[in-house]
């Protein structure tokens, strides 16, 4: 089966310079993410992979380059139009504890995006359901968490459970793209496996597009259709996942491969 490639996000020649660093954090980085696709970014610390995530979320200003999102100019948006465009991008970061306000119950943290935009109702939530608690309940069911956690506080949850809450929050606005920056790096091995599996299932059932960022080549391989390898702010290699062993792999990719091939 061949599907047509519809780009959801197209970034060209992104450059980001921090004045206190000798080399650019991002240097001429281009990437395209197609609808329903998972693009993986692998790199070590300092490679620029998280800077890239923050630039794509417009949490960081660009020094050069353009970003199109949903076929519209995105990098220069401001104020209301930026907030509107950003509704369609979700994000999950490495530390779920930092992503949940310790003073809010899970339902309040989970429903914050929808509380702010009452007109938004995810289409995957069964139709007759109208009230807030029922929506929250269904969102938790999507990430396989027990409903009783709605009234709990973050400190009562394990790391894996907290990360599931942030994933539920990310899907609640039905975004076209979710940026996952090391979403399992702070989790134990077994909950990492469970969260990766959940992300794959959600991608299938909700037709999500992902940008999956990790230092773990094996996890990136497992999740992604295409992989970009970053080093010192540059994309040094990119390939389809099933082309992992092609002889033209960059030597840096080859050295990463050697580490992860146990």
């Amino acid at each position: 089966m061949t599907t047509t490639f519809t780009p959801i996000l197209k970034a060209d020649h992104l450059t980001k310079i921090y004045s206190d660093r000798p080399t650019p954090a991002l240097s001429d980085v281009s990437l395209t993410i197609g609808k329903g696709e998972c693009v993986g970014i692998v790199g070590e610390s300092g490679s620029g992979k998280s800077t890239l995530a923050r630039c794509l979320l417009r949490l960081e200003s660009l020094d050069q380059g353009t970003i199109e999102f949903r076929q519209q100019l995105y990098h220069s948006l401001k104020g209301h139009s930026l907030r509107q465009a950003r509704q369609h991008i979700g994000a999950v970061f490495q530390h779920p504890t930092a992503a949940l306000n310790p003073k809010l119950t899970i339902i309040d943290s989970l429903m914050e995006p929808l509380d702010l935009q009452p007109s938004l109702r995810p289409s995957f939530i069964s139709q007759p359901i109208r009230n807030r608690e029922q929506i929250a309940t269904q969102l938790l069911e999507y990430v396989q968490l027990p409903t009783k956690l709605l009234s709990a506080y973050p400190h009562e949850l394990s790391g894996g459970q907290k990360q599931r809450v942030t994933i539920a929050r990310a899907i609640s606005t039905e975004p076209d793209l979710i940026i996952l920056d090391e979403p399992t790096a702070s989790l134990d091995v077994t909950s990492q496996a469970a969260v990766l599996k959940l992300l794959q299932e959600l991608q299938q059932s909700l037709h999500l597009s992902y940008l999956f960022i990790s230092h773990d080549l094996a996890a990136v391989y497992q999740m992604s259709d295409r992989i970009l390898v970053m080093r010192h702010g540059q994309v040094v290699d990119q390939f389809a996942s099933n082309d992992l062993y092609h002889e033209e792999r960059h030597e840096y990719t080859a050295s990463l491969l050697d580490v992860f091939l146990a």
Binding site: L217, Y221, N242
Partner: peptide, 23 residues
């Protein structure tokens, strides 16, 4: 068994080539 199967793994070159052929 659970711990070992939870570790993300890369396929061997041989397995990936076989997989690509089947596709």
């Amino acid at each position: 068994v659970q711990l070992l199967s939870s570790i993300p793994k890369l396929p061997s070159r041989y397995r990936l080539e076989l997989q690509n052929k089947q596709v």
